[in-house]
Amino acid sequence: MISLSATQSHRYSNYLTFGRSKARILGIVAGETIFLGGTFFAAEPPFLPLPFEPGIALLISGILTLVLGIALYGLLSSLGYRTYSVRFHSPTHVLKCLIVYLAFSAIVVYLGYLLLVYPYSNTPIPKVVDIGIGAVATTLYAISITSIIYAEDIFSENSGSKSEVITKFLSEADSLREKSESEIVDQPKKLLQAGESLLTGLQTSELEGTEELAENLQDWLQTFKHRELQGQKKMVGDLPDSSTRFDVWEERYESFQYIRDELEKMDNSAIERILLSIRGK
């Protein structure tokens, strides 16, 4: 018997929830489904009379599905961008989310077909035209759910701008490294504030893969807080160009480089990364 462990089921559900509250997402999906279902129940059959030949209808529905599919990918990419998980910024991972969303939506749409169309068609296997319409309905349904989650996320009280904090953290680190001691005013303090804000985001994230970065960032910030200015400069890369420097500072800088690389990955959405790689070719 195949059974999913709690961790596995949590991981798979994250493809749909993006680490947000499961109860809230379930509420959004249920509300959306009841609303759309209700509109069909109120309508008189046939629900969607088509003024086209089946071939043209199939072509139009194919094009529409493709356009809506791209829009859905864009929305999922934006949802992933708002998370603190590097994985959800990866084009491949967002594609997996898209597949999960479409599969889930297809099941709901097929159930709708069985409930609303089957009594008239008398066949559980939809016709080719119905499949085309079903594909459009599937992507539209997935888009409607994703849009509500996205809108809800934007208007929620806790949605600080992750991108701004990352930019602040990295730019304060650059400034601390490049400027001479006499030019440094409050860069270490600002760097700490941005770092602590990122740490809170990482620690409160429900997504897997954030623990390692959170742990590294926490250790690094803890050390940074208690060092002299020159030590703080070394921690962000202002190391002497010599083979006789202390290993411990090398390690601290390597830890910063890991944090910086992960944050930079997190500073681009999946779509932006695809566009950047296309431009790079």
């Binding site: 002299e228 202390f246 290993d247 411990v248």
Partner: peptide, 30 residues
């Protein structure tokens, strides 16, 4: 023992001017 010694010295190594020397050839060269 180097790691333990470096850990013990850590508090005074913030300055960019501080280097570690672990052998006579490195000292001569430095």
């Amino acid at each position: 023992e180097h790691d333990d010694i470096e850990a013990e010295l850590d508090e005074i190594t913030d300055s960019k001017n501080v280097y570690t020397v672990k052998s006579k050839p490195v000292l001569r060269n430095s």
